[in-house]
Design a protein around this nucleic acid. Sequence first.
DNA 1: CCCCTTATCCAAACCGCTTTGGATTTGGCC
DNA 2: GGCCAAATCCAAAGCGGTTTGGATAAGGGG
Lengths: 347, 347
Amino acid sequence: MSNGVNLKELSQRLNLSQTTVSRALNGYPEVSEETRKRVSEMAAKLGYAPNSQARRLATGRAMAIGHVIPRSIHEMMNPIFLEFIAGAGETYSRHGYDMIISVVDDEKEEDAYRQIASRKKADGVIIHGPANNEHRHKLLKELNLPFVVHGRIPGAEQETSWIDMNNRRAFERATNLLLDLGHTRIALLNGLEHMDFASRRRRGFEEALAARGLTPDPDLMRSADMTEPYGCDNAMEMLKSDNPPTAFLISSMISAIGVARAAGQCGLKTGKDVSIITHDDALSFLPNSGEVPIFTCTRSSVRYAGEKAAELLLNMISNPAAKPVSLHLDAELIIGQSTGPAPAASR
Amino acid sequence: MSNGVNLKELSQRLNLSQTTVSRALNGYPEVSEETRKRVSEMAAKLGYAPNSQARRLATGRAMAIGHVIPRSIHEMMNPIFLEFIAGAGETYSRHGYDMIISVVDDEKEEDAYRQIASRKKADGVIIHGPANNEHRHKLLKELNLPFVVHGRIPGAEQETSWIDMNNRRAFERATNLLLDLGHTRIALLNGLEHMDFASRRRRGFEEALAARGLTPDPDLMRSADMTEPYGCDNAMEMLKSDNPPTAFLISSMISAIGVARAAGQCGLKTGKDVSIITHDDALSFLPNSGEVPIFTCTRSSVRYAGEKAAELLLNMISNPAAKPVSLHLDAELIIGQSTGPAPAASR
DNA sequence: CCCCTTATCCAAACCGCTTTGGATTTGGCC
DNA sequence: GGCCAAATCCAAAGCGGTTTGGATAAGGGG
């Protein structure tokens, strides 16, 4: 019951060497099935479990994956990150890996990676939220620390392992849907566009417009942290303008909720007077499901991305020579209650 | 540049013993300032950092705190948890501790704690979301694993260290505010009431009503995971009933947003036709600030709670003999746009 | 000048596990 | 019966730090 038999004591109780006991428990073939059974029974009885630090020291593997998140970046402190973590965490624990998360001051981010490498705190890391001018991957290569990117690093797609959804295509399709419904004044409430995912979404939006000979109105394009008030305030401002949009394309459910609130306050009915398409990361506390989801959306489970990213990384670690591999997830375009034909131009 | 000098190599380069080098770097007094300087310079130059596994093995301290979260519990997979983690994480890294998070199947929760203890994966843990019939603390005591509770364990307040906000009082005050505004039919959209925090909030609500001779209407009290649709659907149902509430008291901003949506869909103006008070955990992506916040709320920063919880725990660890200590945070009652006098009984 | 602190530094043990390189026993085959 | 390979098991050497118990040198007082 009391915690704390170690290998030595266990082996003494069994009249066996530490070697044999260790091998028995770790499934090596050089030990008879009979002894193996005897050993594991005694281990269970005494509640033996190998000290992880000792094992890690001996094997040279940290059996842990690091996630470092700069604390000021709101973008990261967000539920999307959490959901990703949840997915990744499942994979880790299924494989006996620990997940260690470091919340650090921005200027200490590089330091954090260096520490992980030099102190051997983790066998690999995940890069979250790559920016347009990303640099972390270079540091990590230099540090010889395996990593997987959640998202893509522009210009380094070939040489890095990553998992990403098709941001450009998703927003292109969403835009086309709105265009097909007759909307021509479409607002884009994007995430921070110095991030790669947001740039791609914007590109998808613009390209879809361009394909129909439309040029985006700069007044209808915003970019910021995806909070609820961000959605509400900007939508409000646009809706009250002389030439309001009839549709919104939004990068996050949370902001979309804000937009819906603004619409309500303006006396506009969502899905009728104003159309909304949002990206939906399938967050567990913000379900947008049902036969007819509240919001028409492009959906891609970020939790699933977390699971997969973790798998990629663990593979890289156990197979260091392998080439970089990447996973491209396709977002679904799902019709909900928030879209409808553009209202006849009346006002 | 290349990572990987160890203590031995470093000491050889310096013509010193490992002992001296170790002591120099760890600030022990038995080494002259001159050598200490020489040592640290060389360490910096060679990029030396002690291997954490080795250090942990030698010192017997894991220098890590564990957070185990059963994966099915949506309640835990929520942004509140994330925000708490963010706060705690800052404290940890400031003190050189790692944060390890285990996402495990429900039935493996106990197992996870046992492993942390027996394999010495962490020096302590945080208990999240204590239930009415909580049991984890007993296991942890048995395992001799220091812990701090985020929330309170009913019946074990004296013997455990915890940090909590005053849930009962906060909801009592909020209810009183609504009563003062003339509302008598007040709906309670609570979190899962098998959780301690939700029970307390309900108690506060009921006691405030009772103090004015009112008995709560069971039809106006709901309890579930605090999602957006939960708020919307239940509010919708109530508002469409024969005898609708004029005010809502809600356990989470997210659900409050849902309630506001329902109100909008019913053509009711929030803060006029219907009043809303919500608890606000001060989540970074759901700001409810400004001169006049959107929602009238009881506010308590869960991120701050995380920081403090971590501090309590680290103190416990470095001072194992100390008595349990607890921190009781008071939620602020903040007036926003979502409350107003009860409409004259007209319908 | 000698003895006793005090200031420095070191060799070696230890933390608890894995893993290498045998040693010993057993069994099959000619 | 003798020989060789397979099957078991073990002693000891790491892994990379921290820490104990001295040893050595330097300084101070009588």
